[in-house]
Design a binder for these strands. Structure first.
Lengths: 213, 213
DNA sequence: CTGAACAAGGGGAAAAAACCCCTTTTTTAT
DNA sequence: ATAAAAAAGGGGTTTTTTCCCCTTGTTCAG
């Protein structure tokens, strides 16, 4: 019987190599490749460096090119690839980004290996495996008429500077704008994000990973 | 030959169980127990639920009882235990906390399995294994006459409130103090932490995990 | 017992942040 | 081609923040 071919993309060598051993214990699967980030994976894929995998296990938090970036690339270039996301990160935003970019499932790293095996089989056979947490978020999205907040380039730039000890005047200089324009950006964002103070803006930025601390 | 007995404490089942397989590939070691957090490990240890381990692999970020808490308990009750910390977290504060509480080494999870094995052997034989990053920090500590910053209860309380959209007046009410006293707290902290604005204070709080976002 | 350190509070003022309402120019979508 | 949005800028005001220097108790070690 042909084994189900799996590729692992994860920067934690200790994890990916261990996981490869775990998977090799299951007779249904074999790991045909292992890469430390999206870039490495894509390079290998483009040079057809391996047999086509049936499933890609994709970590979300990686240096160089993370899971979300990688997922976007896969969606554009190889939408046929079945990706099972694997992460320690259980926040809605990340999960939804992976799912909407075409991940067939999203498992947390504290998943039981038994469940993990089930998920692998389901993704292979049925095409997807959604845990309760994921389907919960999906239902949420449908029910609440989602007013997606989109931040513009320039706004993001402003937010990043607002997360420093600079005054607005200094920020204005930094962005080559008049302080009054900065005033506008601020007021705009306060309204859009339902905030009242710069403190709120900083907290928002941290929570949504606009700035990394 | 007697194998070196290892215990794994990590909340990521997929990781800990995979790692156990990896370790079992090395003939020198055997995994004699696996626990999802410090609490579970301590309970098992106290009820003498297993043979004494030669090495404990301790994850830092865990729910219920994290690596640092666990390390403190070990230092107090079983300082003879050789602990090798294992984490994705490479910030100085965390690393130093683990080391000063008696961890014999601190490995990042993106360590190569070969190095990992070396580390296990060294911890067992020599009693410690310090990677470059750790010894770098250790040297730092010695050179710079460390003025350890200690925050008082009340200060921490204030900082937490400062990380909200409340005004100082509201914070004062919340802490049952006069706004002027709050002024004092602020100025004090600004000086102590070398900050200039409340934004800086918020950033400090986030970085040092005084508030969780 | 005394002096240092600390917690709590205060006056007054300058700087920064927040708010409101308004104009001009540029983009964009239909 | 044109109407509607969005980007940039502004005037003027109130509130909040930041800063500096000062007083009164309390605690605690030498």
């Amino acid at each position: 019987m042909e084994k189900i071919k799996i590729i692992i993309v994860d920067d934690h060598l200790l994890f990916s190599q261990s996981l490869a051993y775990l998977i090799s214990k299951y007779k249904e699967f074999e790991v045909i490749g292992s890469y430390a980030n999206g870039k490495e994976f894509i390079s290998a894929y483009e040079s057809a460096d391996f047999n086509l995998p049936n499933i890609v296990l994709l970590d979300v938090n990686m240096p160089i090119m993370d899971g979300i970036e990688t997922m976007k690339w896969i969606k554009e270039h190889h939408a046929e690839l079945k990706v099972l996301a694997l992460s320690v990160n259980d926040d809605e935003e990340t999960i939804m980004k992976m799912i909407t970019n075409g991940a067939k499932g999203y498992l947390l790293k504290d998943t039981d290996p038994i469940v993990f095996k089930e998920a692998l089989l389901e993704v292979y056979n049925k095409g997807f495996y959604y845990t309760e947490i994921v389907s919960g978020f999906l239902i949420n999205k449908l029910n609440q008429n989602e007013t997606k907040i989109v931040l513009k380039e320039r706004e993001v730039e402003f937010i990043k500077l607002a997360c420093t000890e600079k005054t607005y005047k200094e920020i204005a200089e930094g962005m080559c704008l008049s302080p009054k324009t900065i005033d506008g950006y601020r007021e705009n964002l306060f309204q859009k994000l339902e905030l009242k103070t710069r403190i709120g803006l900083v907290l928002y930025a941290v929570k949504h990973k606009i700035v990394c601390i």
